[in-house]
Design a protein around this nucleic acid. Structure first.
Lengths: 342, 342
DNA sequence: GTGAAAGCGCTAACAA
DNA sequence: TTGTTAGCGCTTTCAC
């Protein structure tokens, strides 16, 4: 528990000199002095207090990441990417799970600002809620004014540079894939209604149907809340009102898992009787019994680029929002509908 | 970007008074003074600087969590539990993914200590490596001396209070389950050899075999590194040398996913031809086509209890290591071996 | 019940 | 090249 002062005393120099050596400043220090300082620091097992440093430099070397749920593999991957890139530049990340609750999210943002994080990254789709959006943009405005970096990794009401994918295009592409296989009764399992990403993916599905002149049938849509349980529930509701469906497009993989499970437990064969598609390409998606056809989102890269963008902003570099590619990965869970099989 | 000083000026009081009001200290403050301070704080949108506070109180209200990989659902769940419990007491958590690399882990620990976290939680099994273990215990000793709390959530060389499960018993129980079904050629897919948890689970498997007087055959064991890819690789190696195996016990679920995938791609039916068991009961385990029989580890609770334990230590309460229950969850992936079927 | 002053551990002018 | 000084924003004695 020694301080820089102790090191100074032991090395027989002033605290300033120690600081210069240990924070390798541009200020010149004679080589043998440097040596002595270094030796003293090692002997005392000195660990600089980053709080004290941050207090004067106004840089904490920390990034806050707001995610919906860190235990959701989608966010796990993103945070891992963030963390790895941050670590390379000696940054630490605070991950905060808001559970898509506006109040909890705001509370976390306030806490992060109190800790004077250098950057805040929003990994999940923004919550659609007037007061939340107003309050958040107010908080972030003052954060930005004092030099904080804000980066978005999904559709959001806040205006800030982003690293995103074209969710709409991904949904369009997957829907086309299913249409191309001959499906016409394609059900859609949506995310939570108040999350922007949900709406964007849904819009892509609808657009692709329209483009193909397939009538849009509202009773083929059901919310699945981006959870496995929700996906299972959704498909059982869908089956109840539309036993004629031949494909289910779950707008994230975790829901697709629930869908697959529910179908299996009803003895419905995938893809022979019903095709199932997901979205995200979460790690385990490829390892299912019937490997999941899905839209691949480069989550790790999104996180990594997000962290890099934060660091770029902080070092005054100009940044531009980026779009990372998405693409359908066809695996075994989709096939032509029963009638059409050759 | 206002400071406590600004609030003081606006409220017409001294900084000390503002501090007393805002950090609700025991020190008495007249009600109307308090009012004025509160109002001024709101008007200025004051956000206390927690770094400055931490510098004087020597408490940062942060906990560092060392995990092997935050994108692994096992750790995702634990971190979520940690985070939720920490959040309730206004604590934030830093999650650090070490990739089971001793150097990276030590680097993270040093960084956390530099940030003066109040507690460090080791979520993953300890790495077996002399220098690592020595250096780590040295770091943690001084950390403990200055009031830091250390809690372990898995087998570890470091000595500290822990929240763990009986990994050995879990492995024993699962092996017995398989033996009970009539299996005798039970393969075991192990975790990374240098991680303590791997060894403990392996020991449980071996002990159960011995107990049942089944000869222990080393060629029925293969390392799977706690990853899906590793699991897939392991089972294909196992199959090559032991085509007679009738069950595979993967010592974590993620590896079991790889095992299931590999078997499926070879057209081997689960559980009809080969039974598969996992360990952990990760979220998606229940949602597979053939829901996985596994040893349930209460990950969320482990994390939650871990955070509580840290907080207890910090508030000077006496803590005792805890054991949380484990138990086999029988699902569809296990059944009697082919010959024995009635 | 309130304020003045010192100081947490560090960095950054400014002098020397 | 080194040291002295001031101060980051807060809490906490100690007076009053």
């Amino acid at each position: 528990v020694s301080s820089l002062r102790d090191v100074a005393v032991r090395a027989g120099v002033s605290p300033a000199t120690v600081s210069r050596v240990l924070s390798d400043s541009a200020h010149p220090v004679r080589d043998d002095t440097r040596e002595r300082v270094l030796r003293a620091a090692i002997e005392l097992d000195f660990q600089p207090n980053r709080l004290a440093r941050a207090l004067v430099t106004a840089r904490t070397h920390t990034i806050g990441a707001i995610v919906h749920d860190i235990s959701d593999p989608y966010f796990g991957e993103i945070v891992r990417g963030l963390e790895d890139a941050a670590h390379l530049s000696d940054y630490q990340v605070f991950a905060c799970s808001s559970d898509r609750d506006p109040d909890r999210e705001l509370a976390y943002v306030r806490a992060l600002l109190s800790y004077r994080v250098d950057g805040v990254v929003f990994a999940g789709g923004g919550i659609e809620n007037r007061t939340y959006e107003a309050e958040l943009s107010r908080l972030l405005r003052s954060f930005g004014e004092r030099g904080g970096a804000v980066v978005l990794l999904a559709p959001h009401s806040v205006r800030a540079p982003s690293v995103t994918v074209d969710n709409r295009a991904g949904a369009v592409e997957m829907t086309r894939h299913l249409l191309g296989l001959g499906h016409r009764k394609i059900a859609f399992v949506a995310g939570p209604p108040h999350i922007r990403t949900s709406g964007v993916r849904l819009a892509g599905y609808r657009a692709a149907l329209k483009e193909a002149d397939v009538i849009h049938e509202p009773d083929l849509e059901a919310p699945g809340w981006f959870t496995s349980e929700g996906g299972a529930k959704a498909v059982s509701d869908l089956l109840a009102r539309r036993p004629d469906l031949t494909a289910v497009f779950a707008s994230n993989d975790v829901m697709a898992f629930g869908v697959l499970h529910e179908l299996a437990s009803r003895g419905i064969a995938v893809p022979e009787e019903v095709s199932v598609a997901g979205f995200d390409d979460v790690q385990t998606a490829a390892y299912l019994h019937s490997p999941l056809t899905t839209v691949r989102i480069p989550m790790y890269e999104i996180g990594r680029e997000g962290a890099r963008m934060v660091l770029d902003i902080l070092s005054g570099r100009q940044v531009q929002s980026r779009r990372l590619p998405v693409g359908v990965v066809v695996r075994a869970s989709t096939a032509p509908p029963p009638g059409r099989r050759r």
